[in-house]
Simulated scan of single mutants.
Amino acid sequence: MPAPDPASIPLPLIFGPFDPSGASHLPIDAVICAGLGAHAGTVATAIHVQDTAGVETIQRLPAELIDDQARCLLEDIPIGALKIGPQYDPESIATLAQIAADYSNLPLVLQLSAPPLVPDLEDLDPEETVGALLELLVPQAHLVVVDARLPEQWAGQGLLSSARAGDPVGALHEFGAPLVLCCNAPLGPGLNGLVLHAHDQAGGRWPWPAPRVRTGDAESLLATVLCCLLARGLAPADAIAQAVPAATALLERHFHPGMGQRILRHAAS
């Protein structure tokens, strides 16, 4: 069998924490990308100590290490798109913002999320971290993926007061995000789904199953699938249309190896 043409293999680069249980973040993201025919480069920004039941501690990695690893890959491999997952401190966010600015030609999928409640993050001011996300990374994102409840929570905490606190998604648009894909958004009585909010253009709505796996961050799975499709060269609207059924199908395959959450299953049956 002839080897595949390297130019035909999507090459996303994913920034995020390392989850040693393989339930979330970089380990499972790399597997998801492989299942979609892509080869993911990864840059760890933190290391979790956790099992399938939850996070015990978080070791944040130095900004210099994050920068060095990212630029090694970006200068070596023809990366096609970037995904930035959960970030916990302003210094790391500032480093990622500079990398994104230096490679502004690459589509950026930004997953916004709330940090886990662990003692390791108690030295940080959550308002400063959220402010850094909004001011440094949101303006550079081609597509923001977020649980619909999080912008509302930030608005209620006054973190969006510099924009339109009464319209949280509109506030994200004002910070510079052209496309905001909200997960777990209400579509009707008793029905949640995905809602795409596009600045100054038509959006979209899709049903989205209540997942039994990755119940806390199913939007991360969706962001990873989107990054793969953007790395393949698809336009954001086309990538979203393909990502929704692909991610929905992935959520149906899972198993229960430990005491906590179920894990996505990508091994052959």
Results as ranks from 00 to 15, higher is better:
R60Y: 02
R60L: 14
R60S: 11
L61T: 02
A63Y: 07
A63I: 02
E64I: 03
L65I: 07
I66R: 00
D67T: 12
D67S: 13
D67E: 14
D68S: 06
D68I: 03
D68R: 10
A70P: 07
C72M: 13
L73R: 03
L74C: 01
I77F: 06
I77S: 07
I77N: 02
G80Q: 00
A81R: 00
A81V: 00
A81T: 05
L82K: 08
L82Y: 06
K83V: 02
K83E: 08
K83I: 01
K83F: 01
I84Q: 05
I84K: 01
G85K: 04
P86A: 15
Q87G: 11
Y88K: 01
D89C: 02
P90E: 05
E91W: 04
S92M: 01
I93S: 02
I93A: 06
A94E: 14
A94C: 11
L96S: 06
A97S: 15
Q98P: 10
I99A: 10
I99T: 13
I99H: 08
A101C: 13
A101M: 13
A101N: 11
D102A: 15
S104N: 13
L106T: 06
P107H: 00
P107G: 04
L108C: 05
V109K: 05
L110V: 08
L110C: 07
L110Y: 09
L112K: 03
S113Q: 14
P115T: 02
P116T: 02
V118Y: 08
D120F: 05
L121Q: 08
D123H: 14
D123F: 11
L124M: 12
D125E: 15
D125H: 11
E127Q: 15
E128M: 14
E128G: 09
E128C: 13
T129C: 12
G131Q: 08
G131K: 05
A132Y: 08
A132E: 05
A132L: 10
A132N: 07
L133C: 15
L133T: 04
E135I: 13
L136H: 14
L136P: 01
L136A: 14
L137S: 06
V138H: 06
V138Y: 09
V138R: 01
P139E: 10
P139T: 08
Q140P: 09
Q140N: 11
A141M: 10
V144K: 04
V145N: 00
V146R: 00
V146F: 01
V146I: 13
D147V: 06
D147F: 05
R149W: 03
R149S: 10
L150K: 05
L150P: 01
P151H: 00
P151R: 06
P151E: 09
P151K: 03
E152W: 07
E152R: 04
W154F: 00
A155H: 03
G156F: 00
G158R: 08
G158V: 11
L160I: 03
L160C: 03
S161C: 10
S161L: 12
S162I: 11
A163E: 11
A163W: 10
A163V: 11
R164F: 12
A165E: 12
A165Y: 00
D167P: 09
D167M: 02
P168Y: 04
P168T: 00
P168H: 01
A171V: 04
H173K: 07
E174D: 15
F175T: 06
G176F: 08
V180H: 02
V180M: 00
L181D: 02
C182I: 05
N184L: 04
A185T: 03
A185D: 07
P186E: 12
L187Y: 08
L187N: 07
P189M: 13
L191H: 13
L191Q: 14
N192Y: 10
